[in-house]
């Protein structure tokens, strides 16, 4: 039921997730940020079982920060992703497995390249141009398959994410009222919040940069 999308361009990554915390059929919270900033250049978005999401992502976040302090350099995206996979795989074989699906996206300031990793709850990892988890994937993958290009610009990638969200809102039984979108590029991490709009009687979303109120819309 949770939404999680990632799109990788040449020198940026776009991550998007919904904001709902639900228990059974009840929405408990409408403004939950499901992403963790692992360091200056890397973001991890997490969905899954409620308790697992928090304890696992906090553990990963803290440890990656600790690594960064000890080594005196931030971990790269692939280092973050593979260490996370290893931790999840080990936990899976213990008495307390974590039921979490992850997307890890980031920018490498040394190579000037971005990368996006998709890790599922069985801890299979793959580096991909675009990714989604859960029910969302059935709606978003077809759209991303069709529209994705290697030379996508930041604005185009955000617009593609908006189209995915619009499609979900239109076709998915379980509607989601809001989303958080993050762009990770050379300058760092930019956060956008969703703003629902009405477009010829149909709902769509604009994304507003939290820092400077710049609006990105689909059109």
């Amino acid at each position: 039921m949770e939404t999680q999308i990632g799109i990788r361009g040449d020198n940026f990554v776009v991550l998007l997730s919904d904001k709902i915390v639900a228990q059974s059929i009840v929405k408990m919270k409408h403004n939950q940020d499901k992403m963790k900033q692992l360091n200056k250049n890397n973001v991890m978005s997490v969905t899954g079982e409620a308790g697992d999401v928090d304890s696992f992502s906090e553990y990963i976040e803290a440890n990656i920060k600790l690594f960064g302090l000890r080594q005196n350099r931030p971990l790269t995206t692939s280092e973050c992703a593979y260490w996370t996979r290893g931790t999840l795989a080990e936990a899976l074989r213990s008495r307390s497995p974590y039921n979490v699906n992850l997307l890890i996206g980031g920018f490498n300031p040394n190579t000037k390249k971005s990368s996006l990793y998709r890790i599922d709850y069985l801890s299979s990892i793959c580096e991909v141009p675009f990714a989604a988890h859960g029910y969302t994937s059935y709606f978003a993958y077809s759209l991303m398959d069709k529209e994705y290009r290697k030379d996508l610009t930041k604005e185009e990638a955000i617009k593609l994410a908006i189209r995915c969200v619009k499609q979900l809102d239109h076709r998915f039984l379980v509607g989601q009222p809001g989303f958080i979108l993050r762009v990770i590029d050379e300058e760092g991490i930019h956060t956008y919040d969703s703003q629902p709009i009405l477009e010829n009687g149909q709902r769509s979303f604009n994304f507003v940069n939290v820092a400077n109120n710049v609006v990105v819309s689909e059109a």
Binding site: R85, G86, A89, L92, L122, S123, S124, I125, C126
Partner: peptide, 11 residues
Amino acid sequence: GLATDVQTLHD
């Protein structure tokens, strides 16, 4: 086989 085991085994 199962991808997670493929990767763990490769490691």
